[in-house]
Design a protein around this nucleic acid. Structure first.
Lengths: 350, 350
DNA sequence: GCGCCCATCCTAAACGATTTAACGAGCGGG
DNA sequence: CCCGCTCGTTAAATCGTTTAGGATGGGCGC
């Protein structure tokens, strides 16, 4: 005889109360360990609840309390391993805090994002944690917050939206990568990936330019191969750069997937990364260390800012009036085997 | 003046009704395009709803209808790329069907799984789609279904649980891999990874044994290096196999992560996969094709059975009495560069 | 002109919890 | 003997929907 089956319909608070000869008020209070109910009663109630297999209906509770303990997470992508890590970190931190995750994926499509987040909103999450799809506008986000739901941005940021944000200092990260290459003696450095339609894209490109500028090197648009953060972009990008009259000797990438693609492209061109050409990735995915040759890359501390984003959401739920917070972690360069001094061709072209 | 702000509190069905001089019943029906409400009224209501920024409260609706349109997804892991692909496929299929995903991750820990799924259950999902943590028992799952929630298993299966299931034919898949190696001339074939504590572990090991048996080869326990589906297991496993007195010339792996680790191990031992040693992975992650050398592996059709699992869940929601269904997709061997005939040492040892 | 039938809309009762104000029972003190 | 206080419990309102079961009124056939 299982705890569950007994009688028709599921076991509800009211049924439990009736069976115990108590009011629903007492049972409700007892189940939540209220100090006003007598110890003996509390124990009796909790035991009965367990025995009868009672499982609370949070929908009903939320209706009354206007709090769901749900956090809606809106990601623009989920297959990219870096976002998986982010999702894992968010889920972990939120579930520890007693929140449950409602998931929505926008596939980098604003219309779909609007639809998805709109649906999530109907469940009245206490907060949204969002990595906005490319080209998301301020008013798109504002619409979310309209119903009083806390909004936190993670990884990407819609500039001027005025919501909390946790992410990585993209500009500094790419500058770091460029500086590393400059230090090795490179003078012509390309950039692969990056789309100006996202904040990360703009900022990493800015970091590239800043890195060049800091070394007194000119910015040449021809050395930038734009595209989404996919392997294919990297492959095509490196081939484009190599085909130039005066090709670069090194390149930084928007992310590791771009870099992996670029490594394939190099190989297809008969070149060896870390000898004939230097390459720096971005993210430090687990594969980066295992690739052959191992990828020099920038560690963006995703799990860390994931936890921080979760914390920001919790804080804003607790106090909607608190000042807006922006947390920008400083990334770290991880030097491995795909970077080396430029091949000794001529000291400098021309 | 935004659609939202006007007045105190959010805009509810009742408010909308009062403002329109209609009853909540009519407004509710109008919003859901019921044919019983006059066209003119319907249009008027829907326009007002849009203008006032009305967003329905599904919690309240669910309370009445006993249907939430939520599907709880319980995964034991989320970082492993194959489960990410699964999650993406599930989310996509479910959201197309108008369902929203509530996510729970068990970290391969039964206690945590019980806790997590228990919490999810409080939101009364219409169905659970679960890849059970190792060592999950039938009664663990039965407890979930107790409240009348549909349960579908995916990837992994708790034998004898009697719930719907969609996954890959693991036994056939590994047999395929072994047969491929046998066909190339290998006679001593090891297995790396697999834990007997999961259905996939048991079945892939069974496939290994079946493959050997089909070729008339003996099963030698020493040639199996057990461990979880991580890169590290693969690395340690291959080194263990190579250290044997009479090492195998090839191995199949539990999954691609194991295989990636094994490739690293081979490299560390100064051996080249596809020449000195043959290796077959399992899953066909995107990286498999890009690794150097490209990994021969088994494609398990994850996105496909993910969609099927979603379909099973929808079907069971629609008809709880329908017969239990088990869908087992036949995996496909993908031959790349890590497999070749055994090195010409002696035709056969001894 | 009289019913009758539709098309439309409304009243009111759920759904399952939380929460506030009130109530009854003891009990000690004046 | 009564008052007032504490402790434990309860009645009832409430959250925002859906929906069964009327009510209303106009058009139409006879």
């Amino acid at each position: 005889m299982d705890g569950a089956g007994g009688g028709a319909g599921r076991v509800t608070l009211q049924r439990l109360a009736r069976e115990l000869g108590l009011s629903t008020a007492t049972v409700s209070l007892a189940l939540r360990d209220s100090p006003v109910v007598a110890d003996a009663t509390r124990i009796k109630v909790q035991e009965a609840a367990r025995a009868r297999g009672y499982v609370a209906n949070r929908g009903a509770a939320s209706l009354r309390t206007a709090r769901t303990n749900i956090v809606g997470i809106g990601l623009h992508d989920i297959i990219n391993p870096s976002f998986t890590e982010l999702l894992a970190a968010l889920e972990e931190a939120l579930s520890v805090a007693g929140k449950t995750v409602l998931l929505g994926v926008s596939q980098e499509d604003v219309a779909r994002q609007t639809r998805t987040l709109g649906t999530l909103a109907e469940y009245r999450p206490d907060a949204f944690i969002v990595s906005p799809a490319a080209a998301t506008t301020v008013s798109d986000l504002k619409a979310l917050a309209a119903s009083g739901i806390a909004v936190v941005q993670v990884t990407r940021e819609v500039e001027g939206s005025g919501f909390d944000f946790a992410g990585s200092d993209d500009t500094a990260g790419v500058s770091l990568a460029v500086a590393h290459l400059v230090g090795l003696g490179h003078r012509r450095i390309g950039m692969i990936g990056s789309l100006p339609v996202t904040s990360t894209g703009r900022r990493r490109l800015a970091g590239y330019k800043a890195g060049l500028a800091a070394a007194g090197l000119p910015f040449e648009p021809a050395l930038v191969a734009e595209g989404p953060g996919l392997r294919e972009t990297g492959r095509a990008g490196i081939l484009k750069l190599l085909a130039l009259d005066d090709p670069p000797t090194a390149a930084v990438c928007f992310n590791d997937l771009n870099a992996f693609g670029a490594l394939m492209g190099l190989q297809a061109a008969g070149l060896t990364a870390g000898r004939d050409f230097s390459l720096v990735g971005y993210d430090d995915l687990p594969e980066a260390a295992l690739w052959h040759p191992a990828l020099t890359t920038v560690f963006t501390r995703i799990p860390e800012y994931g936890r921080i984003a979760a914390g920001l959401a919790l804080a804003r739920i607790a106090d909607p009036a608190r000042p807006v917070e922006r947390v920008l972690l400083t990334p770290r360069l991880v030097v491995r085997d795909t970077t080396a001094p430029p091949p000794a061709r001529a000291g400098r072209p021309r």
